[in-house]
């Protein structure tokens, strides 16, 4: 493979990560962590495959992916945003629920090919890739140059004060979770439609949700940072097939993205500590000293 092809593959591999990570970034900017990305992507992929097989429409496939993830995220909205249960626990529960539901919904599709997503002729990238590239600048505009974005950040920084000033914290947060879920769902749908001809199999999105969450941190909760982090991890997936040539056993190559993300996470944490940086969304690191 030539470098240009690898770059292009990297972009394609980065797309589901980018969609899910930007969604999670929105959630975390509203002051909550939804660890259920992995589950929402799984459900998104399964629902997309099912809808693709039965309607034959790519648009319906992507829409169902988003919708299914939103329905799953409703559990999070009710449990965490409304009832106030522990966000970490509920996030994990969402992962398991999503994986299980994906297997059920996916089994309806029966492994048949659905609606493949192919690159736009002459451009080399497909529609969703194009849209996902436009998303970071749009989100940047919304976050930093619109009152909606200011409200979202305000809720994330100090929910009590936001409520005292009359912002409907639950509404803002609930919407953030649902938008995040929709993006994760489309990310999952993209995996099925673009990588597997709209076909679903168990574990098709395995691990991507977690990497997306790590990418949010590595991108420092900034749309453009997240874009960079996701593209770099996407490149890792793209060069994976090249590693066996270098003598690395094929099975161990599967660990490469995770090892790299773990290493990046360690380095990023150490750098943040050295500089004394407090994340913009203070949801991950409490005020622990060390």
């Amino acid at each position: 493979m030539n470098p240009a092809a690898i770059m292009l593959t990297g972009l394609s591999e980065a797309t589901p990560l980018l969609l899910a990570a930007l969604g999670e970034m929105i959630v975390e900017r509203s002051g909550r962590v939804n660890l259920g990305v992995e589950g929402m992507m799984a459900v998104g992929a399964a629902a997309a495959a099912y809808a693709g097989v039965y309607t034959g429409s790519l648009a319906a496939s992507l829409a169902f992916g988003a919708l299914a993830a939103c329905l799953l995220a409703l559990v999070y909205v009710v449990a965490v945003v409304i009832l106030g249960l522990d966000q970490i626990v509920v996030g994990l529960i969402l992962v398991f629920m999503g994986k299980g539901l994906a297997d059920i919904i996916g089994s309806w599709a029966g492994g048949a090919p659905g609606t493949p997503l192919t690159p736009i002729p002459g451009l080399g990238i497909d529609l969703v890739e194009t849209a996902s590239l436009a998303l970071p600048p749009i989100l940047w505009l919304i976050l930093y140059h619109s009152w909606l974005g200011v409200e979202l950040r305000a809720v994330g920084e100090d929910e009590e004060e936001a409520a005292a000033r009359g912002i409907n914290v639950r509404l803002v947060r609930g919407l953030a979770v649902l938008v995040g879920a929709a993006l994760a769902g489309i990310g999952g749908a993209y995996v099925a439609d673009a990588f597997h001809y709209g076909r679903w199999f168990s574990g098709v999105t395995e691990g991507l949700g977690w990497i997306a969450i790590a990418d949010v941190i590595l991108g420092y909760w900034h749309p453009l940072g997240v874009l960079a982090a996701c593209y770099l991890t996407g490149l890792l997936f793209a060069v994976k097939p090249l590693l066996p040539v270098l003598g690395v056993p094929a099975e161990l190559v599967d660990a490469a993205p995770y090892l790299a993300v773990l290493a990046a996470q360690v380095v990023a944490t150490v750098i943040c500590r050295r500089l004394g940086l407090t994340p913009p969304a203070s949801v991950w690191w409490g005020e622990l000293t060390g």
């Binding site: 529960i93 969402l94 299980g100 297997d103």
Partner: peptide, 10 residues
């Protein structure tokens, strides 16, 4: 599907 169990447990 076996993972139905996982959903019920959740």
């Amino acid at each position: 599907p076996f993972n139905t169990v996982l959903v019920i447990q959740s």
